[in-house]
């Protein structure tokens, strides 16, 4: 997702760079939070990595510094990042890093489900809707204490997740 085309400005000390989807309807700070989580899941970020410096984010996206601070506070609150005085914010947690064999197995099961859904006449949006609804019911009933709440909004993570997974883990299946 941060595949920098040639000719981008000098990057900061962080392995990732943020981008914004202005029309997505997701608040800006939440977009930053989700992108960090996404990068953690996909292995772009590991514990000890530095998150983009506030000044760099602000200078490339032209957004309010308070928005970046709010996102980093939220990540600290979720136990994923921590501030080091005078240095910046660093990754401290990990997110659901399931081993590769398990991921492959889960993915195979999912593809089977997708095929069944397709045969039943469901299109891609319908599958996402159904999956999101089921996921919502599942997290509501079972894992109350599990992941942080605000990011697990119905719809959104499913969509952006689909895109990222497609690009990064295509070879796994």
């Amino acid at each position: 997702m941060s595949g920098n085309p040639p000719g981008t400005e000098a990057a900061g000390p962080s392995p990732i760079a943020f981008r914004l989807e202005p029309g997505s309807g997701v608040p800006t700070y939440l977009q930053l939070v989700q992108q960090v989580e996404q990068a953690l899941r996909l292995g772009y970020l590991e514990p000890g990595d530095q998150l983009p410096r506030v000044k760099d984010v602000v200078g490339s996206l032209a957004i309010n510094p308070n928005t970046v601070l709010k996102a980093y506070r939220e990540l600290e609150h979720r136990g994923l990042a921590g501030g080091r005085p005078g240095q910046g914010t660093f990754v401290e947690g990990t997110l659901g890093r399931v081993g590769l064999p398990e991921q492959t197995e889960l993915r195979r099961a999912l593809v089977g489900w997708l095929r069944a859904a397709d045969e039943a006449g469901l299109d891609a949006d319908g599958m996402v809707a159904l999956f999101s609804a089921a996921l919502r019911d599942f997290t509501d009933s079972a894992g109350n204490g599990q992941p942080a709440r605000p990011s697990q909004r119905p719809g959104r993570p499913g969509r952006s997740g689909g895109r990222g997974r497609g690009s990064a883990a295509e070879g796994v299946a």
Binding site: P22, G59, A62, I63
Partner: peptide, 27 residues
């Protein structure tokens, strides 16, 4: 971007007028 970078560096307050409403939300 450079105005916001100045805000991030110096912690100053900014007040600007605008009749352009779009994109205010970012800033």
């Amino acid at each position: 971007a450079s105005l916001m970078a100045a805000v991030a560096e110096d912690g100053l307050s900014v007040l600007f007028s605008s009749h352009v409403v779009a994109e205010l939300e970012r800033v």
